[in-house]
């Protein structure tokens, strides 16, 4: 294939992307798409999250911008998103918000009624059962510990200089 043909077919790839074709947008939507894809590790591919994490696709751009700005402005960052938001400039947050706002709120795949293949959800029922079992053990453990603490003193305190 000649270089010019290759270039043309390549441009066709980019133009086939959802937003690159919109003439109203001055900014490169594929840059926004790349930036926004960095949320997908936790919020799902294209912002359609699984489990209890928030879906962000189809959110109003203004709302997303405001939410992220609020997180960024926390005096004392407390959760993961407070820290994550601090990683992006206002301009980047605006781009991310614009990208997710441009997607449909409901996952087209789910709407089409197609079952998601290969659910990756890890057994939570078992997890909770395990949790209860452990809580019972913890209670016994705590009682045991209280007894021991009454009997012993801090003579087994670790020597912090032993390395």
């Amino acid at each position: 294939m000649t270089q010019s043909k290759r270039r043309l077919s390549g441009i066709a790839i980019l133009l086939s992307l959802p937003f690159a074709a919109s003439p109203a947008l001055a900014e490169d939507e594929t840059v926004n798409r790349l930036l926004a894809s960095q949320c997908a590790q936790c919020h799902g591919t294209n912002g359609y999250a699984r489990g209890d994490f928030e879906d962000i696709a189809g959110e109003e751009a203004g709302d997303l911008f405001e939410d992220l700005s609020d997180m960024k402005g926390e005096d004392r960052p407390e959760n993961i998103m407070d820290h994550q938001a601090l990683g992006y400039s206002d301009e980047q947050i605006r781009r991310i918000a614009r990208y997710y706002a441009s997607l449909p709120e409901d996952d087209p795949e789910r709407q089409a009624g197609s079952e998601r293949e290969g659910e990756v959800e890890i057994e939570r029922a078992g997890e909770h059962e395990y949790e209860r079992e452990y809580e019972r053990e913890y209670e016994r453990e705590d009682e045991h510990e209280d007894e021991r603490e009454r009997e012993e003193h801090d003579d087994d305190e670790r020597d912090e200089d032993d390395d």
Binding site: I11, I13, L34, A40, G87
Partner: peptide, 28 residues
Amino acid sequence: KVCADAIIRAAAGLSTQNRERLANITTN
């Protein structure tokens, strides 16, 4: 994702090094 984006651009004969893209390369 940064790599996939770069290859798609390269395949399209487009620059991966333009200012707009570089200013927005992040990982987390």
